[in-house]
Nucleic acid binder design. Structure first.
Lengths: 342, 342
DNA sequence: CTGTGCCAAGAAATCGATTTCATATGGAGC
DNA sequence: GCTCCATATGAAATCGATTTCTTGGCACAG
């Protein structure tokens, strides 16, 4: 491969001069031109590894997500990528698979590769450890999930608001026995969504003059995966007094819940189904699914922006940006009255 | 950060010895133990950038895919990742977005970062240029799509066989006016699938004593995206004699086709729909969709295996592995007879 | 005419690990 | 007891770009 030394020799200058030509140093126009020309002729591209070693920083940022097969995260990844392209940073995507060990390995790699920064959707609120990054003063932005105790910039979704909006909509549509399939206990996103659900149900019960909390058995915890949603839904349907609607706390569990409903011969909107997060190809599901839409792309875009500011060395105080959800009403929650023929 | 020199000093040995401890050189057990211990205490992890510079090779492989939001490719990516983990290679994922320029940028990065190898699902059969890799003798494996004229190992799907199987199944189910929504002209995957379709239809016509080719207007070209599938399906439905079934050459276009069908108030299986490639959450679509299942995970796994062999320096002749598809019959192709109420 | 200051440009140090080369030590064989 | 070899180890070169340090030349002011 042609190195900076080859170019220097060919152009009759020193390697330092070649470097300066490519990095905005002061070089006389005539020489700069000559260097650029020979470099182009020889097909010279600076060796990034050597550059990173010397600069102690690579022009790469890491993006660590817990599930590459979840469209929410892939859309987020596109947001990051598009934003990063603006400052010539490239993005490497790592899939932690919701596994804290795998995640740690990737964090170690990010550190050892001297990446310019990391955006991480943490696999665990408690056990994700960002101290490696802190030690090296490597910029980090948390996205979607904030690891406990980490002092980093963050971009979050207004989960509680989304949960409230969803539950209120179900109530407005006439459903009365509303269940919730929440995510894993301890996951911040799950707990906030659940809190939104709880607060609206509580208010409703108070208005009705009943008071109290939603029935304990109407709240189930899944694992944010398809199978967990299916199991939770099956349990709900097996209750002595099953619910007439469900708010499911993520898209994949919704897929599972819908499968369980179908197996039981039950069809929305007689049974209301509202998903937190777009289900891919939602428009294909019959009937079309009402969802709380998440700004996944913007989440990524915003996170990448914050990270780039930090990389550039801003000393703004840490900030947390919260993006709003948007309720997308479709037929799956049009009300228990319109029973389809069963 | 603690370097190999810090560790060496602390352990009272030379940096060379520390390096040997971590790279399987000959070191007396007692010293090795001491080095390992101090290294652990100091939290030493070798700087990958420096290592890559010296070794002229990083312990990272690049995976370039054209669409990160297509579950086919994400599943493939998981296969690559799982296989790579076996030899401690990490995978960086790059999304070319079906854009040859973006793809070239990533290839340049892979070269400049001195990645150990690249697996690429080419954005274009003609215009994807792998000469950069060839120049540096960097191992490359093509997956799913083979760039024209590149001498690299490849892992492919038996597209023609899949197309034949699909079309034959539609015929067996009683459909007679079978259309095909193919991919972009020039894409090898698309053309092979289409060839499979053509050959079966041709044979059928001959058996019927008619002979000839499938009607030209029954073959449409889309762009492998949702919108393309929708448009193609709409055109098919607008024909004077519309088809009674369609073989769609990829999963995303199938989603579009289903949307167009629904808008026209037509429902499978009265109109047969068969998708090449699993539609995500296929089980949710009503009625369940028949598909030609692609071994996406195995594609990735196999490609990573081949790449690792090359990285290890095997001199086996170039090989192309072809993996078979499997027809998954569901209700969307159960035959035109069972007309659902329209 | 000389001193000061500025700027271009080369020489050389640097980043951190690996690897070659040289050296010392110990043991085996005669 | 001496030679020879194997082996452990350290010193130093190396990878390729960036950056600091130096030098030399030129311009301008006094």
């Amino acid at each position: 491969m042609t190195t900076i030394n080859d170019v220097a020799r060919a152009a009759g200058v020193s390697p330092a001069t070649v470097s300066r030509v490519f990095n905005g140093g002061r070089v006389t126009a005539e020489r700069a031109e000559r260097v650029r020309k020979t470099a182009a002729e020889m097909g010279f591209a600076p060796n990034r590894v050597a550059r990173s070693l010397r600069k102690q920083r690579a022009s790469v940022i890491g993006l660590i997500i817990p599930d590459i097969e979840n469209p929410f995260f892939t859309s987020l990844a596109r947001g990051v990528e598009d934003a990063a392209q603006q400052t010539n940073l490239s993005v490497v995507l790592c899939n932690s698979d919701e596994d804290v060990d795998k995640e740690r390995r990737y964090l170690e790699i990010a550190a050892a590769e001297q990446m310019a920064g990391v955006i991480v959707a943490a696999a665990s609120r408690n056990r994700t450890d960002l101290s490696l990054m802190a030690n090296r003063k490597m910029p980090v932005v948390a996205v979607d999930r904030r690891p406990r105790g980490a002092s980093v910039d963050a971009v979050m979704v207004d989960n509680q608001h989304g949960g409230e909006e969803a539950t209120a909509h179900l109530l407005r549509s006439g459903y009365r026995r509303i269940a919730c399939i929440a995510g894993p206990e301890g996951a911040s996103t799950s707990e906030e969504r659940l809190a939104g659900y709880r607060s609206v149900v509580r208010d409703h019960l108070r208005e009705e003059g009943v008071g109290g909390e939603p029935p304990r058995e109407y709240v189930r915890h899944g694992d944010f995966r398809v199978e967990g949603g299916r199991a939770a839904m099956a349990e709900l349907l097996a209750l002595p007094e099953p619910p007439d609607a469900v708010f499911v706390a993520n898209n994949l569990m919704t897929v599972g819940a819908l499968q369980a409903l179908r197996e039981a011969g039950i069809e929305p909107p007689a049974f209301g189904v509202l998903s937190f997060g777009d289900v891919p190809w939602a428009s294909l599901v019959r009937p079309p699914l009402s969802t709380v839409q998440l700004p996944s792309y913007d989440l990524g875009w915003t996170a990448a922006g914050l990270l780039q500011d930090r990389i550039a060395g801003t000393d703004k105080p840490l900030q947390t940006v919260v993006l709003r959800t948007a309720l997308q009403v479709r037929e799956s929650t049009s009300g228990p009255g319109q029973r389809s023929a069963l």
